[in-house]
């Protein structure tokens, strides 16, 4: 019997983070959508199980809209709270504790931002916050740069997953450092989820082809002309990239090798 083409999900193991398993390797954010309806439909089309949310003050005057849980069911999606907007370890720890108190899970997507223009992480603050939160029983997924040594230190500090960027948050510049991401994946034991910077489906596919365990994206969907169609594209790009990685690509060669035999050519 010949081997038939199998979708990646048939041959792949589920993604395991902090004792939980997930089928989808695509995680999505809930920010910046034009409408809540568009957000809900895009998330549905993405097939994502993990969705990120942020902790903010309730609007006491109700001039703005309701919280995101008004639109997304916490029974249907695994809510991953972030600490976006935090610039110090202390601030990030405070936000993480508030998020956990909401009562859904002890996972946190830890962000400690170090620069307002690039939103690149403050890796020293990130490590300090990671140690504090791990000690406090959190399952920490740390948003970090594409620096291997920082990723190694985050793993040593007890992160359940490390989330290096493809490129800066919201930039849509795609995967700027495939070597860096590949190296982080090769050297770490915990899952590596690329977070931020993916702009379109080919970026997602190329990222997954590096062998990483998953991708988290927000702006690429929210700011697409058609977020729902882009979500569909991203879902398939992540699956395709994962399958291509598992399949193992052919070697790159500097010279051509004919695909058609020379034998049998007319004399």
């Amino acid at each position: 019997m010949t081997t038939t083409l199998a979708p990646a999900e048939l041959v792949d193991t589920p993604l395991a983070i902090g004792g939980r398993t997930f089928r989808s390797r695509l995680m999505v954010g809930t920010g910046k959508y034009r409408t809540n309806q568009e957000m809900v439909q895009a998330i549905e089309a993405s097939g994502a199980e993990i969705v990120t949310v942020a902790v903010r003050r309730v609007d006491l005057d109700r001039t703005r809209e309701e919280g995101v849980l008004h639109h997304l069911s916490p029974e249907r999606y695994f809510l991953l709270a972030n600490t976006a907007g935090c610039y110090t370890a202390d601030e990030a720890v405070r936000y993480a504790r508030l998020a956990r108190e909401a009562g859904f899970n002890d996972f946190v997507k830890l962000e400690v931002i170090g620069d307002r223009e690039t939103l690149l992480p403050d890796t020293a603050g990130l490590l300090a916050a990671t140690r504090e939160l791990v000690k406090d029983g959190f399952t920490v997924l740390a948003y970090t740069s594409d620096d291997l040594v920082t990723a190694l230190r985050l793993e040593e500090a007890g992160c359940a997953a490390v989330m290096p960027l493809a490129s800066p948050i919201g930039s849509g510049l795609g995967l700027l450092n495939p070597y860096g991401i590949r190296t982080i994946k090769r050297r770490l034991g915990v899952p590596v989820i690329v977070d931020a910077g993916v702009g379109t489906a080919s970026d997602a596919c190329l990222t997954m082809e590096q062998g990483v365990d998953g991708i988290l994206m927000n702006t690429a969907l929210a700011e697409a002309r058609d977020p729902i169609m882009m979500a569909w594209a991203m879902r398939h790009a992540v699956d395709a990239g994962r399958a291509a990685y598992l399949a193992g690509r052919m070697p790159r060669r500097e010279v051509a090798v004919p695909s058609t035999p020379d034998r049998g050519m007319l004399g």
């Binding site: 920010g31 957000m39 942020a54 903010r56 309730v58 909401a102 948050i169 919201g170």
Partner: peptide, 10 residues
């Protein structure tokens, strides 16, 4: 007093 909830974010 701080009163917080979940909002959309990435």
């Amino acid at each position: 007093v701080e009163l917080v909830h979940f909002v959309g974010g990435g």
